[in-house]
Design a binder for these strands. Sequence first.
DNA 1: TTTGTTGTGGGAAAGAGTGGGAATAAGAAG
DNA 2: CTTCTTATTCCCACTCTTTCCCACAACAAA
Lengths: 148, 148
Amino acid sequence: MFIGSFKYSVDSKGRVSIPARFRKYVNPEANDTFFMTRGIVRCIDIYPQDYWREEVLKRIDQLDDFDIEESTFKRMLLELAAEDKLDSQARLLVPRNLLEFAGIEKDVLILGQNKKIELWNPEAYDAHKKESEKPYSEIAKQVMQRTK
Amino acid sequence: MFIGSFKYSVDSKGRVSIPARFRKYVNPEANDTFFMTRGIVRCIDIYPQDYWREEVLKRIDQLDDFDIEESTFKRMLLELAAEDKLDSQARLLVPRNLLEFAGIEKDVLILGQNKKIELWNPEAYDAHKKESEKPYSEIAKQVMQRTK
DNA sequence: TTTGTTGTGGGAAAGAGTGGGAATAAGAAG
DNA sequence: CTTCTTATTCCCACTCTTTCCCACAACAAA
């Protein structure tokens, strides 16, 4: 699983290294291929191929192109989506429009989120934490009760 | 699958390049042949031949010519439909009336929508996004819950 | 110290997007 | 039916971007 946080940098071509710790947890069947897209907040989500297909794609495939609400959502999700394979230096090329969406320039905060990886603008992440009005303990109680 | 967005241009003859990324996902059986028609909103839909036949045509075939509403829909869909094969530069010739329908002139935004490709007037797309009253996170939650 | 790994940077070759001209076909006019 | 004009199709060429590969420095392990 992906856990922990790392402060890396984005080079001039938009490449981001995937931490070595994370690479060890990617299934061989993912074939070093990842899918990225916007998160539901201002960050970038990165999924290993196998997980993307199982969890995300399966659900997207159920949406109907002739339903306006469903196709609108699909459009928003896929507009900023991209597929890429790690290069020989274990980096991913992140599209410009995705970096812009997340407000990432030189510095990037890489977060492990169990099955997926998130990329944040470091300052934006700090701000996001402060904005969250409820304390961790309160959210924890509320959200985790559903999963018991 | 077709994902991501690209800003390309339409040349004076009405030709539009299909992004290289997209070409890799077109089945050989499609034989570089595509079907285009109007979208359910103000954009152009482009389907690889195999998907058009399997998914779209099959549904159109189910419509009843003796039902006024169904035959009206069919008429609107097929009026602007066209078939074309990629030229040696991997471009499609898009009919004038389709470009007019979508309000596309010089610049075009190409969107990957999983199984199909959409062409938009860039400004129209921005406007369309702003019109959408609900934020992404809300639509995401609402739509994706249906697919669980 | 030596060896291997990891994050970062950059250059060269191949590929992709765009524009335009020549050849062919289609249509209008005489 | 022939001729002229217009439109379409096919092919070539240019330029910029992307991709692939090599190299370096910092750090850790042996």
